[in-house]
Design a protein around this nucleic acid. Structure first.
Lengths: 212, 212
DNA sequence: TTTAAAATGTTGCAATTGCAACAAATACTT
DNA sequence: AAGTATTTGTTGCAATTGCAACATTTTAAA
């Protein structure tokens, strides 16, 4: 994951955050970050910790939109529908920086190279985020639970360059991430184990198929 | 949709494209744009026309990843998996600009305000794209065909600020976009019409429900 | 360490969906 | 304008899935 302050010296980082009037916030594990931290358009940068963006349906379905870690960004301009319906939940103690998006974009500081570098870094981060979203879409467009699981496992395995990897969250969360029923997923995982496609020990998953 | 050259004069636009060694290409309707236009990391800008990014599954399923129009961007850095498996298809006669992504990012032209402006514009476009991806994910995470359709219709209606709108593509494409079986979708649309949720005349759709 | 809470595993059953196989209607091409 | 290709509509049926309800295991908190 790209660091939003890549190629920016400590000193310039401070200057930048001052110019942008960035605010720092600390949250305990399992707390809800209200999206109305400030009124306007904002970008949040995760300095440390883990966040989940959660959507709770009118159908009572809970969907994990994304899971974010250090260096990731989030914010109003990155969500549709003014993000009214999203919950942002800390999974660990988390520190974030909040920056006003409009102020950031409209700042007339072209001569400051650290400002330009920062914008470039954000572009790179958001571009990576698109790739993640596309991966997510790849998974969600698979028609069966089995194919969703296999696609998810393949991508996870590829991203970690290892046929063995650890789930970054619970199986309950995985079901929410894949937008499928947890018990149906559990059933399908059993079949996949029985048929020798995968091996599971706790959150440790090993792929036993070559490619599918 | 944001124009990638917003706030850049014609003159500076030319300079910029020269510096970036941008190449212009024209394609006829229904032609495949090979993703190996050039070898490296590239960004494509749609000057005019319409493109679809298509993925064909090993299961034989055809999925529309996105539909792009004038001002939109696409490119290797925006796809996962080195975009080997994606087809880029013109739906109309289309003109694009190709820019080398690494060259763009690594250019040392901080003093050129049009360059910085261009990067900012790209950030804005990619940020909007994230919103679109999130909307797509919202739709795909709905568990029933009915709810996928209703969510799609809601978003389409909201985006056009009108309860009547036109499908931007065929119903066959819509099924591919929603990742559902076309005939099953057709059946569900019939029920939605019968139950008075919607009205359909050709590609013209009117929502008759207040909110759902 | 005990207790409570959350996560995981399991299963029957009803609802939903994909698939296949057509007919009918539209849209393109020459 | 005729002929071909594509899109749309329809339906039975089998497969998949969600849901509910519960037992068991694991994790977290007091």
């Amino acid at each position: 994951m790209t660091n939003p302050f890549k190629n920016i010296s400590e000193k310039n980082q401070e200057k930048l955050l001052k110019i942008l009037e960035a605010h720092r916030f600390n949250f305990r594990k399992n707390s809800l970050i209200l999206t109305n931290i400030n009124q306007g358009n904002f970008i949040g940068i995760i300095v440390d910790g883990i966040l989940q963006i959660i959507k709770n349906d009118y159908n009572g379905n809970r969907i994990i939109i994304e899971e974010l870690e250090e260096g990731d960004i989030f914010g109003t301009s990155l969500f549709p529908l003014q993000n009214v319906e999203y919950d942002i939940l800390t999974k660990e103690d988390t520190t974030i920086l909040i920056i006003d998006y409009d102020q950031l974009i409209n700042l007339q500081q072209d001569n400051k190279e650290y400002y330009n570098q920062f914008i470039k870094n954000l572009l790179e981060i958001v571009t990576n985020k698109i790739q993640e979203k596309n991966e997510r879409i790849e998974i969600l467009t698979k028609k069966t639970i089995r194919n969703k699981l296999l696609e998810y496992f393949n991508i996870a395995s590829k991203n970690r360059s290892n046929r063995t990897f650890y789930l970054p969250f619970t199986f309950t969360d995985l079901a929410d991430f894949l937008a499928i029923d947890r018990s149906a997923m559990s059933r399908e995982l059993k079949y996949l184990k029985e048929e020798g496609f995968i091996e599971i020990k706790g959150k440790r998953i090993t792929l036993l198929f070559d490619k599918y």
